[in-house]
Computed example of a mutant assay.
Amino acid sequence: MPIKRAYQTLSHFFATEIAGGICLFIAALLAMLMANSELRSAYAHFLHVPIGVVLGEQTFSLSLTHFINDGLMALFFLLVGLEIKRELVEGELSSRAQAMLPAVAAAGGMAGPALIYAFFNWDDSIAMRGWAIPTATDIAFSLGVLSLLGKRVPLALKVFLLAVAVIDDLGAIAIIAVFYTSDLSTVPLLLSLLIIVGLGTLNRYEVCSRTPYLLLGGILWVCVLQSGVHATLAGVAVAFTVPLRMTGNKKSPLPKLEHDLHTMVTFLILPLFAFANAGVNFSGLSPSVLLNPLPLGITMGLLAGKAIGITGTVWLMVKSGAATLPRDCSWLAMMGLSLLCGIGFTVSLFIGNLAFAEGNLDMVNFVKLGVIFGSSIAGVLGYLMLRFIALPSLSLDK
């Protein structure tokens, strides 16, 4: 039957690695089209629709954009935290030998872009707040582009890219916590710490139900939001307290929670984030605007910074004898993979919002331009290098 066949086709599509990246791309493209058409007023109005609750005489509300960036993205970081914990406990980062090379590569892949961004913006103290924007790697987009290459990609390359991206996310979490925290409010912060202790107690006694973790997590989010620490970090705190290894016949709640969150985050939250944050109005902008130090620093950071930082640190590790290249990986493949790590879309835009929350519209648009332009070029160059140069030469070597 046609309906059943269509359902099966859609189910197969949403199960693929590339599906999330395609949804992100469509949402970002739709935002840019609306921001540059007669619908721009409707688009702006939609993003400022208030969402909240009324409790007696107290009103708690956020604009739709802030609800997405501060609220729904907390669920994104909850998923990221769960993935990081699983990899650290029993995955590709569970041993020192497994984690060393991708950890060093991720560190290089964050330092390189930050240094290049600083090179272009050193004399502008306001622009320097955005030094961390090009340090991020978008897991959904980068794995989505890699999946376009199909079975010709060695498994070790996929594992290496995933490990680097996971560690990169851990670094982004640390950067947000340390460098993008505003003035702290003592009472909400203390309440947040008490709730985290409560979550830790649930973990200690191996509470299997995920409900108490999510309930306390919701309260924690409100307290963190009021404390001055960015609210999305509440998701990470909850993730690290959800137990993974259980004694006896108890079943861990982490895998099921991670699975359930994955679909919602991939096909709802991240596309909504892209739609709310990728709308750049190009009217009055000339191509020369990309030469402004801020977007240029982001673009070159994502391109050259990631490529040099990751490939360079891996080269140093291999030449020093401290590590070896991943199985079935060449230096050309490593360069192509490092270019894919330059797709920083989601987390880069997120950090850009934090860096210039109080900035003017021009600066925010500069961030969006740099992230979109740099991520697009990195994705295209990485794909082309792997597809036509690195992987064919790897096959010939065999």
Results as ranks from 00 to 15, higher is better:
H12N: 11
A15R: 10
E17N: 03
N36R: 12
S41Q: 14
I51W: 13
S63R: 03
L64S: 08
T65K: 11
F67A: 15
D70S: 13
L75Y: 09
F76V: 12
K85S: 06
L88R: 03
L88T: 00
L101Q: 02
A103Y: 00
L115D: 03
I116N: 01
G130H: 08
S142R: 07
G144M: 12
G150E: 07
L161P: 12
L162T: 15
A165P: 12
D168N: 13
D169R: 02
A174Q: 02
F179Y: 13
S185Q: 14
T186H: 05
G200A: 12
L202M: 08
L202E: 05
Y205N: 11
T211P: 00
T211Q: 02
L214Q: 11
V224L: 14
G228M: 14
V236D: 03
R245A: 11
R245S: 05
M246W: 08
P253L: 08
L257Q: 06
E258N: 12
V265L: 06
L268P: 00
P271A: 05
L272N: 12
A274F: 05
G279Y: 08
N281R: 05
L285S: 10
P287L: 12
V289W: 09
P293A: 07
T299Y: 00
T299I: 15
G305F: 02
G305E: 07
I310E: 03
A323Q: 13
D328R: 15
G344R: 01
N353W: 02
F356P: 00
G359L: 07
G370M: 04
A378V: 08
M385Y: 02
S393Y: 03
L394E: 09
D397T: 10
